[in-house]
């Protein structure tokens, strides 16, 4: 087991190096995004640009630059300075991580609370009216753009512009340190909007998984033992069907922490990582783009690892030395 984790961590680190290298090459070699030109401002003379280039060390070979960059990250946890904000990239990202994590984890809990029961009930009552209608609704939710859902929800419930103004609207995010109620209130709408599509995806996913599992021989055995149907479903059925859902969850959380909640954050004006990405791209703030991308890759790699370990733990058939 330990050996397995170690191997996976090593692979993860190798993966991150690869990603960082690719990002580096893309951004530093892209002609339209010469950092020196950008840094120098609009009316800089070629001379000035050249000097900046030198001061930034951009005149040296790419490989040396890359090694330098990685050294800084490794030994000083220094991702460079944002042109735009004039602060260190790492502190910028850490500031934004709180809101994104609040949004992500809250939404994840919400979509699990909705998706899992719906998935199970639909599977058990497969093809019933209830099942058919929830599946139609879920399909609608999956295809609805987050953007549109967000605006609609604001238009309906936001306390400034809403028809039924009962919930805090856009731009009212408060950190958890301001108190749980002040924190949660403004997040209710974003949570719901972000969770809606996922809840639907999870419900459908679990449903089809569960239908397969309920046809397995060991479910027949559980029934033949005389277990009440409720227990057959909730214990023997769910235990198997939930495993792939948990891996899906890990991957989704990784992706959201990496900044993929960009639309929800924009609509609700939450100062999260996604918005930072948007800003950085908008202003061609290369160190920031690079930092954010690396961080994102880090989360995705980490959560992939977590998922694999969780899977090996949840499914005793997985043998670590085979992986």
């Amino acid at each position: 087991m330990l050996e397995y984790i170690l191997r996976r961590v090593l692979w993860g680190v190798a993966m991150l190096f690869l990603v960082s290298g690719v990002i580096f090459v893309i951004f530093y070699l892209l002609p339209s995004a010469d950092p020196a030109t950008l840094r120098a401002g609009r009316q800089a003379s070629p001379d000035q640009i050249e000097r900046i280039r030198e001061s930034l060390g951009l005149d040296r070979p790419v490989f040396i630059q890359y090694v330098d960059y990685m050294k800084q990250i490794f030994f000083h946890f220094d991702f460079g300075y944002s042109y735009q904000y004039e602060t260190s990239v790492s502190s910028l990202i850490f500031d934004r991580l709180g809101p994104t994590a609040s949004l992500t984890f809250g939404a994840a809990i919400l979509w699990l609370l909705m998706g899992i029961p719906i998935g199970i009930i639909s599977a058990v009552r497969a093809r019933s009216l209830l099942d058919r209608s929830t599946m139609v609704i879920s399909l609608a939710l999956i295809s609805a753009p987050v953007f549109w859902l967000g605006l609609i929800s604001l238009y309906l419930f936001a306390d400034d512009i809403g028809l039924i103004p009962i919930l805090p609207g856009a731009g009212s995010y408060e950190p958890l340190s301001a108190g749980p109620i002040a924190w949660a209130g403004p997040l209710i709408l974003p949570w719901t909007v972000l969770a809606a599509a996922s809840a639907a995806v999870y419900a459908r996913y679990l449903r089809s998984d569960m239908i397969d599992v309920m046809g397995e021989d060991y479910i027949r055995t559980a029934r033949a033992k005389g277990l009440p149907e409720r227990k057959v479903v909730m214990k023997h059925g769910v235990r198997s069907a939930i495993t792939p859902v948990i891996t899906l969850l890990g991957l989704d959380i990784g992706v959201l922490l990496a900044g993929n909640a960009i639309l929800t954050e924009s609509v609700f004006n939450i100062p999260g990582v996604g918005r930072l990405v948007l800003d950085a791209i908008d202003k061609a703030d290369l160190p920031l783009i690079q930092g954010v991308t690396l961080f994102g890759a880090f989360f995705i790699v980490i959560f992939n690892l977590v998922v694999d370990i969780a899977y090996a733990y949840l499914d005793p058939r997985v043998r670590y030395d085979d992986l």
Partner: peptide
């Protein structure tokens, strides 16, 4: 019926691997 199954009347099946729950 549940009270009879596995108690007064039991069953065994052809494929013992797929008939046992893999996770318990």
């Amino acid at each position: 019926l549940e009270a009879i199954r596995g108690n007064e009347v039991s069953m065994i099946f052809q494929d013992p691997l797929s008939s046992l729950h893999p996770f318990f």
